[in-house]
Design a binder for these strands. Structure first.
Length: 712
DNA sequence: GACCTGCTGCGGACTG
């Protein structure tokens, strides 16, 4: 394959002393150089995907064409900064300039690029949006003859609002591009290949190159039952022994828990005179502090460290030296688990190492289910929204500003060719425009649509470029240094103690006007409470949990500690008294005293929808997403009747949704731009993004409730 | 009991 590459690139490979190319690199070289198709590259973490894309692209580039040659799009600034060094080193062999273009990049570098547009540009979706809105002439100048567009960590966009926005931006770039560009997507964890292909705009003209080899992994499962809200001391002591001499990332699933783990490990370490390199890293920790921690972990080769973090360290920056990954309770998705495990053992010949702690039997089962499914090559297939009305609304405002006004027909044409909105009809586009006119987001002058009075306020703010919402929060400050940010919560009061950035603080003063909280170090404190919703669990994970609990072949796990084996055995004992035959439709119904517990073993959206239908029918029930259970205060036979007859007409559902929208407007907060949509479109979004009524009704119709035959 | 992501343009003060 190497002979297909240009001379400077071959020199780069020689200087790097690579003995051979990785499989994904050989394949990518052949396909990128010898075909004209769009390409999705999928192979395990740390397998050299960036080089797999850049070596052949740089070899094949037409250097006589004007402007930027390659646009690399990343979901994270941190990832751009990390990749910049690697890509620049490579590009030096060809004297191709590389420019970072994101909100924290130097303005001088951007100005230099505008003066002589060339080479590779590393950018975020939001910065593309901003450029199209504010300086469309720059976009045309820079990207008018673009040859390649690379999407890194493409899975993080699939099935999300940000993915729809990116699809629209790619489409809009295509419209100002005169020569046509190829799209190359990179990822280690793609569940739905068809959806990844859609992001190129031409799924039928897109090739998937997949290296199925998996990173070798050492796993151990441990079990410490939680009592109350704080982590068991025994768990922390065991965790301390696991991490004290290693370089470790710990994923405890929430920001509050991440703080608890960091502070308590540090305390234990202090008591036994261990090292002090315990950190917490999540979105509420100040950015500078986070960057310091990242830098420390990246450059430090000698000392052990432990970073207790959320998904902030799940993708992107390469901390090459991480030896172990600790997961506390189940990750909400397989994709997420795989990315996390892939943070360790990234060097040649190393294995990944995962220690999975569970604090109850359900989390243990869910963690096992994720690992089993990964071994079976299953990753959640994410699906893009059929009709993303809210994203279209945002893009309409963006396009009107980009073109400085358009007629309705011109605007409709521009949207009609945008592949991100291929399923939305001209009538629907018209309806959304009408709504925007009513809200004065748009204004019509003659035939021309321009940004309206209210729209000016929407469009001329920096918050316009992103499609996700962020809550207001208070800056936490100690001696002029910002430690991080916390939302306004009950414990944010003078003299209360809080945990943040792996330290304990006492609140001294609160400035409500400036949203600032002044703190001093303290000895003991509560973990902060954050708002927010975790990820949604896919139905397949719950189905696999049922299988683990009910099917005999899942009773021998050498990776489980004795305590974990015992916890699993007890839960299995309880569930094996049901005679579950068909994992897809049989569901346990447990009679307990005066209660009947229906275990749906369903995904979050379907559970939520069942709960919605039950409340629509005024049936008293207690719903727990944690174990996917519904507790009724009636007899099992009555529950069977309830479940088997539970259904609602579309009209009933709509009516209930409308009541919900009226009584509790915060239910629309999942959509940043939904509030300007007509009410029936808001209802549609709520039904399709938060619930899955079709899935729920299909499940309820087909499921068969199994009552325990006899208590063992 | 529950994650994450990003951000323009301009005016004015300050530094070397």
């Amino acid at each position: 394959m190497i002979e297909l590459l240009s001379a400077p690139i071959r020199r780069y490979i020689r200087d790097k002393r690579w003995e051979s190319l990785r499989p994904i690199q050989s394949h990518a070289i052949a396909h990128i150089i010898q075909s004209d198709k769009h390409i999705i590259l999928s192979s395990k973490t740390a397998s050299g995907k960036t080089e797999a894309a850049f070596l052949p692209m740089l070899s094949k580039l037409d250097y006589t064409r004007r402007g930027v040659k390659i646009l690399y799009v990343s979901p994270l600034i941190a990832l751009i900064n990390d990749q910049f060094n690697r890509i620049e080193e490579l590009c030096e062999y060809l004297e191709v300039p590389v420019t970072k273009w994101h909100g924290e990049a130097k303005r001088s570098a951007k100005e230099a690029l505008l003066k002589s547009p060339d080479g590779v540009v590393l950018i975020t979706p939001e910065s593309i949006e901003a450029m199209l809105v504010n300086a469309p002439q720059n976009a045309a100048e820079l990207f008018g003859e673009l040859q390649y567009l690379v999407i890194d960590e493409i899975h993080s966009f699939i099935g999300t609002d940000r993915g729809t926005q990116l699809a629209s931006l790619i489409s809009r770039l295509g419209q100002i591009n005169k020569t046509g560009f190829r799209v190359i997507g990179l990822s280690a964890t793609i569940g739905a290949v068809a959806e990844a292909k859609k992001l190129t705009g031409h799924p039928e003209h897109t090739t998937l190159l997949k290296d199925k080899a998996k990173r070798e992994m050492d796993i151990s499962f441990k079990y410490y039952k939680i009592e109350g809200v704080e982590l068991p001391l025994d768990l922390l002591k065991d965790l301390y022994l696991e991490v004290k001499d290693s370089k470790v990332l710990i994923f405890p699933n929430s920001r509050g828990r991440a703080e608890e783990v960091a502070v308590k490990l540090k305390k234990i370490s202090g008591r036994v005179k261990g090292h002090t390199n315990y950190f917490s890293h999540h979105s509420s920790v100040d950015r500078e502090l986070r960057e310091y921690i990242e830098q420390f972990a990246k450059t430090n080769t000698r000392y052990p460290f432990a970073i207790s973090c959320t998904s902030t360290l799940e993708l992107g920056i390469d901390i090459g030296s991480v030896e172990k990954v600790v997961q506390i309770d189940a990750a909400h998705s397989i994709a997420s688990l795989i990315q996390r495990v892939g943070r360790s053992g990234r060097r040649d010949g190393e294995k990944s190492s995962l220690i999975s702690y569970a604090t109850d039997e359900w989390n243990l089962t869910q963690s096992l289910a994720c690992i089993e499914l990964f071994r079976e090559d299953f990753i959640e297939p994410m699906h893009a929204a059929e009709k993303p009305y809210d994203l279209l609304l945002h893009q309409i405002l963006s396009i009107v500003k980009q073109y400085n006004g358009r007629t309705i027909d011109q605007l409709k044409d521009l949207v009609a060719v945008n592949f991100a909105f291929a399923n939305i009809s001209p009538e629907e586009i018209h309806y959304i425009i009408k709504g925007l006119l009513e809200h004065e987001q748009l204004e019509q002058i003659g035939l021309e649509l321009i940004i309206g009075v209210e729209g000016e306020r929407t469009v001329n703010t920096k918050d316009f470029y992103s499609v996700f919402r962020t809550d207001p929060s208070f800056k936490i400050i100690h001696q002029d240094k910002t430690i991080g940010e916390l939302p306004l919560m009950s414990s944010l009061q003078i003299d209360e103690n809080i945990l943040l950035a792996a330290k304990i603080w006492k609140i001294q003063e609160i400035d409500y006007r400036a949203s600032k909280v002044f703190v001093i170090p303290a000895k003991d404190g509560k973990k902060p409470i954050f708002f927010g919703t975790g990820g949604e669990v896919h139905p397949k994970i719950r189905e696999k949990m049922l299988e683990i609990l009910c099917v005999g072949r899942y009773n021998n796990y050498p990776e489980l500690s004795e305590e974990a084996q015992e916890a699993l055995r007890l839960l299995q004992l309880e569930f094996r008294s049901f005679s579950i035959q068909d994992i897809r439709i049989d569901r346990p119904l447990m009679a307990k005293h005066l209660e009947s517990i229906f275990y749906a073993f369903q995904g979050t959206k379907i559970n939520r929808s069942i709960n919605f239908l039950l409340s629509l029918k005024n049936i008293e029930v207690e719903y727990h997403e944690h174990d996917s259970s519904f507790i009724f205060k009636t007899s099992p036979s009555q529950v069977i009747t309830i479940i088997k007859t539970l259904s609602a007409t579309p009209e009933e559902i709509d009516c209930q949704i409308d009541r919900l929208l009226q009584n509790n407007p915060t239910v629309m907060e999942f959509s940043k731009w939904g509030k300007y949509l007509p009410l029936d479109y808001q209802r549609f979004l709520l039904k399709s993004k938060v619930y899955d009524f079709e899935g729920a009704q299909n499940f309820l119709q087909s499921c068969s409730l199994i009552i325990a035959t006899e208590k063992q």
